[in-house]
């Protein structure tokens, strides 16, 4: 079973790879919309990558209002 820290770290790694940004520039409390400048379609892409990576289903309505990696990690952790 992953810890919350491990889940957060995997999210940050995956995000850095997918959006081609240096991993060191991403932190758990970052607002990913602002930090990455992503639109709705890119957010859905990220959601799909996270679901595929963690092997979970994460209904997109659970992400409503979620803007930072740490909260996102909490949502994912609750599905693992």
């Amino acid at each position: 079973m992953r810890t919350l820290e491990q889940t957060t770290d995997e999210i940050l790694n995956l995000t850095a790879t997918h959006f081609k940004v240096p991993r060191a520039e991403l932190a758990p409390n970052d607002d990913f919309f602002k930090k990455l400048g992503i639109d709705s379609l890119q957010a859905l892409e990220l959601l799909t990558r996270l679901e595929n990576h963690f092997g979970i289903e994460l209904p997109d309505y659970e992400l409503q209002g979620v803007t930072d990696f740490r909260t996102l990690a909490n949502r994912i952790q609750s599905r693992l």
Binding site: I38, S40, A43, D60, Y61, Q64
Partner: peptide, 8 residues
């Protein structure tokens, strides 16, 4: 102009 306009 929301970032997630498709979400209900």
């Amino acid at each position: 102009t929301d970032a997630l306009p498709y979400l209900p």
